[in-house]
């Protein structure tokens, strides 16, 4: 059974703005989904609806089999939320902030667990500090610690690495990997494609309130990934030789390189023929290289398509 089930979830804000136009999505336990989408796509709205910060205006969703509206207590006790905006009480101490969150979930004190969470997020040294004495990156980690204080089975991370330095970002990826190893299901939103590429199992692309696709990361890259073959020539060419027309070649590097784009999943890539024809055309090669298009290009392509 899927731990998260979202069926045709809709949200129309007061004033008539349709922020979610019927989103459907299932997630298996222990899975990590990265939600990509431009500003205002509806990522935060989707997460807010699942966590109870806004009321959906249509459709349904359940977490752990519990409906998020009719059985909100059971559903929410499984959920940890790290919001996009940093919201903390400036005078509160780190330790108190995190234990407060645990208390809200109705759980008894568990100092050992809080300690391990704070240590994992490198906040242990700062446990006695007031929130206002922390840096931005530390505050974000306090938000994560609060969300983990009640050992959630499902974690929503709304841009957890915004404004976080490179080293810390890697630490966070590690934290996410550890949580995954513990079987926690994670939905995270991000604007960093390399982040999605690095930690997600599946990738969802959302734009204008609609999920454009949700797909296994590797499959997505394989399906949509086009490869490019870069052919370095001994002697630069002024134009693509007529004999090679039909391959859609392009010249780059002031005539030094021929660029051939092909689909790895097409029935034939055309590489064999091309290499033969190159020899027949009398071109001498000095090097060959292939590159795969990144998720970023795929993403930009999709969003452009949906805008058109």
């Amino acid at each position: 059974m899927a731990i998260i089930e979202i069926k045709d979830l809709k949200k129309t804000y007061e004033g008539g703005f349709e922020a979610l136009k019927g989103v459907s999505l299932d997630m298996e336990e222990g899975e990590i989904l990265a939600l990509l989408g431009p500003n205002g796509a509806g990522k935060t709205t989707l997460i807010s609806a699942l966590c109870g910060l806004i009321s959906p205006t249509g459709g349904a969703a359940s977490v752990g089999g519990h409906d998020i509206v009719s059985d909100y207590r059971a559903a929410r006790s499984l959920i940890g939320l790290v919001p996009q905006e940093i919201a903390l009480e400036p005078f509160q101490r780190v330790w108190d902030a995190v234990t407060f969150s645990r208390g809200l979930f109705g759980l008894p004190r568990d100092d050992a667990h809080i300690e391990s969470v704070l240590r994992q997020l490198s906040l242990w040294e700062k446990r006695r500090a007031r929130i206002m004495e922390l840096s931005g990156g530390m505050k974000r980690r306090v938000l994560i610690a609060k969300a983990l204080s009640h050992k959630p089975r499902v974690l929503f991370l709304d841009e957890p690495t915004a404004g976080v330095d490179v080293e810390l970002r890697r630490d966070m990826w590690e934290t996410v990997a550890q949580l995954k190893a513990d079987g926690v299901t994670i939905i995270l939103t991000t604007h960093y494609i390399e982040e999605a590429e690095a930690i997600a199992d599946r990738i969802g692309v959302i734009d204008k309130g609609a999920l454009l696709l949700v797909e296994d990361k590797a499959a997505l890259m394989a399906r949509m990934g086009r490869k490019t073959l870069l052919i370095s020539l001994r002697e630069p060419q002024a134009k693509v030789p007529d004999a090679l027309e039909g391959y859609g070649l392009e010249l780059a590097d002031e005539g030094q390189t021929l660029v051939y784009t092909y689909d790895t999943h097409a029935e034939r890539t055309g590489i064999t023929g091309l290499l033969q024809d190159l020899g027949e055309a009398g071109l001498k090669l000095s090097d060959l290289k292939t590159t795969q298009s990144s998720l970023e290009e795929i993403f930009v392509g999709l969003v452009k398509e949906s805008a058109a």
């Binding site: 910060l53 207590r73 059971a74 559903a75 929410r76 006790s77 939320l81 903390l88 009480e89 809200l104």
Partner: peptide, 18 residues
Amino acid sequence: YFPKFIGTIYELLSAPIN
């Protein structure tokens, strides 16, 4: 008003409480 103002009300709304 304070949690509403600084945004920490998100915690109250997303906790399993009524």
